[in-house]
Design a protein around this nucleic acid. Structure first.
Ligand SMILES: [Zn+2]
Ligand SMILES: [Zn+2]
Ligand SMILES: [Zn+2]
Ligand SMILES: [Zn+2]
Ligand SMILES: [Zn+2]
Ligand SMILES: [Zn+2]
Length: 175
DNA sequence: GAGTTTGAAACT
DNA sequence: CAGTTTCAAACTC
């Protein structure tokens, strides 16, 4: 896996201010997104630079061993779904918000502009992109929005994702 | 910019 | 796996 050049980092205005982790842990937004740190960062003792390519790669491999999906996009499209809504996007692991009601960027679902769903363990969810609906995911693949009688957000919340092989969702997502 | 709040990541 | 700690982003002032 290639680490992206810091010039690209500038494009999305990503920057970090890490102080204690040398920008070699997922805490660091630059490292987590596969970018090197660059001038706009104000990190201390940064090792997330091309000069320390080996250290970066070593840390990546260590983290990937722990979690093979650590560097894959957290927001991803679910398989299946309604013909009219073929690409429902969700946060793979879901959030665990307890205090923010998923109304701020503290919530990774909200931050990713996707609704919460059955993988989320949030409390008092008020995510404007779609609230978690009581942990239910009872709309089966192939059901249309019209048939379900639900509005779009509620449909997405209750849509039951399924992989192409018809396998179990959790195993297909390595959860 | 400093201080607080928050929840993911890391650790045990 | 669950509980706790650590950490830096998001937020507030
Ligand atoms: Zn960093
Ligand atoms: Zn950085
Ligand atoms: Zn850095
Ligand atoms: Zn949330
Ligand atoms: Zn969520
Ligand atoms: Zn939520």
């Amino acid at each position: 896996m290639d680490t992206k050049r810091n010039d690209d980092n500038d494009d999305v205005h990503r920057r970090c201010k890490c102080k204690k982790t040398k920008c070699l842990k997922l805490y660091c937004d630059c490292f987590s997104a596969g970018f090197y740190c660059y001038e706009a960062c104000s990190c201390k003792e940064c090792f997330n630079l091309r000069d320390y390519e080996d250290e970066v790669q070593e840390s990546r491999e260590c983290i990937e061993e722990r979690n093979p999906l650590a560097f894959s996009p957290k927001i991803h499209s679910l398989e299946g779904g309604d013909k009219l809504m073929p690409n429902v996007q969700k946060h793979r692991k879901g959030c665990i918000c307890k205090k923010s009601m998923c109304m701020h960027r503290y919530c990774e679902c909200y931050k990713g502009k996707v609704g919460c769903w059955s993988n989320c363990r949030c409390e008092g969810c008020k995510n404007v992109h779609g609230m978690k609906g009581g942990g239910k995911c009872d709309i089966m693949i192939g059901t249309s929005i019209r048939e379900s009688g639900l509005d779009q957000n509620e449909f997405i919340n209750r849509f039951t994702p399924q992989d192409k092989n018809g396998g179990d969702l959790k195993s297909s997502m390595n959860l």
